[in-house]
Computed example of a mutant assay.
Amino acid sequence: MSTWSTNLTFAPLALSSQDPLPALALSKLDDWGMVTLIGPDSKAYLQGQLTCDVVSLEAGKSTLAAHCDAKGKMRTVMRLFHIENGYGYLQRQSVMATQIPELKKYAVFSKTDITPSDNIVLGLSGEQAQAAIDAYFTEGDDVRHNDIATAVKVDAQRWFIISSPEHAETIAQHFAAEATLSDSTLWDLYDINAALPRVDSATELEFIPQAMNLQAVNGISFKKGCYTGQETVARAKYRGINKRAMYIVTGEAAQCPQAGDALERSVGENWRKGGSVITGFQFTDNQAMALVVLPNDLDEDTQFRFEAQPEAIWEKQSLPYTLDDDA
């Protein structure tokens, strides 16, 4: 086990729901991992496995994508990008043991080597993150490399930073000089605010990509050729069979909502299961936020609650993007 972070303390931040986020924060993302595909057939192989258009992915860009089973249910949501001689992708550690063998299943017929990486994953966030990355990496694209690290842009205020265990402390110490240190829960909060999809073991093979809004964050190409699960994904778009979407909900909670937790919804004077939590964050003032997959035809005044705390009413919030699907 790597001990690179022994000299640094990455702990949960004590944030109330009214507190501003740190101008610059460095998070240790132990619950994220990297996989590489190296070899001349890697592009073609991934093109036949993922929802995104791998062929059109530019060298300096990244994209969200899903890897589905034959029924169109997601094994993972990943962030895919080019690395030297191939591709890398970042996904949740909790699905590594099940997703990688499925991705490898037909690779015996292709010249591509699919390997889980031991690289350390960090997250740099905040309004000063872009300037800090610009100062450390001389390249100007959304995927940047130097001799010891790779940085992958998520949005205007966030970057993944990936390095080998032997260089991780050097990189962390560099950014720690100006940044607040945090564990991965701060990254979860950013993902909730951005309504970015993810799949953990508790939600693996539960949802099709559109149920987590993947089409709204450019994670699905409806113009590429065949890939595993494409029939279901296309039918959800063109025949309107998808009845779910992912939403931000907020409310009072005694504990942080966890992936797979059930959220109940109001139906008249009764309550029924409403949806499944994708990820959650709890503030110090007992307020909390979560991403939840819910029916996409609910009334605007629908209320929500968790069975363990029925007196606390939750509400749906606005998404930072539109769910209109015209791609």
Score class of each variant (00 low, 15 high):
Y227L: 03
G229Q: 02
G229K: 00
Q230S: 05
Q230F: 03
E231D: 10
E231L: 06
T232D: 07
T232Y: 08
V233N: 02
V233P: 01
A234E: 01
A234D: 02
A234W: 03
R235V: 05
R235T: 01
A236S: 13
K237M: 09
K237H: 13
K237Y: 05
K237W: 07
Y238D: 12
R239P: 04
R239T: 06
G240R: 07
I241V: 11
I241S: 13
I241R: 10
I241D: 08
N242Q: 10
R244H: 11
R244S: 08
A245L: 09
A245R: 03
M246C: 10
M246D: 07
M246P: 00
M246L: 12
Y247S: 01
I248D: 05
I248E: 07
V249R: 01
T250S: 15
T250Y: 12
G251V: 05
E252W: 10
E252P: 01
E252H: 14
A253N: 07
A254K: 14
Q255D: 15
Q255N: 14
Q255T: 15
C256H: 13
P257D: 06
Q258I: 13
Q258P: 07
A259R: 08
D261F: 10
A262L: 15
A262C: 15
R265W: 11
R265A: 14
S266T: 14
S266M: 12
G268Y: 05
G268T: 05
G268R: 08
E269Q: 11
N270F: 04
W271L: 04
W271H: 02
W271C: 02
W271V: 06
K273L: 12
G275H: 01
G275I: 02
G275Y: 01
S276A: 15
V277G: 06
V277H: 10
I278D: 09
I278K: 06
T279W: 05
T279P: 09
T279D: 13
T279C: 14
T279I: 14
F281H: 12
Q282T: 12
Q282C: 11
Q282P: 06
F283E: 00
T284L: 12
D285H: 02
N286G: 08
Q287L: 10
A288V: 00
A288F: 00
M289L: 15
M289H: 10
M289A: 13
M289P: 01
A290S: 09
A290I: 04
A290Q: 03
A290W: 04
V292L: 03
V292K: 00
V292E: 00
V292R: 00
V293Y: 01
V293G: 02
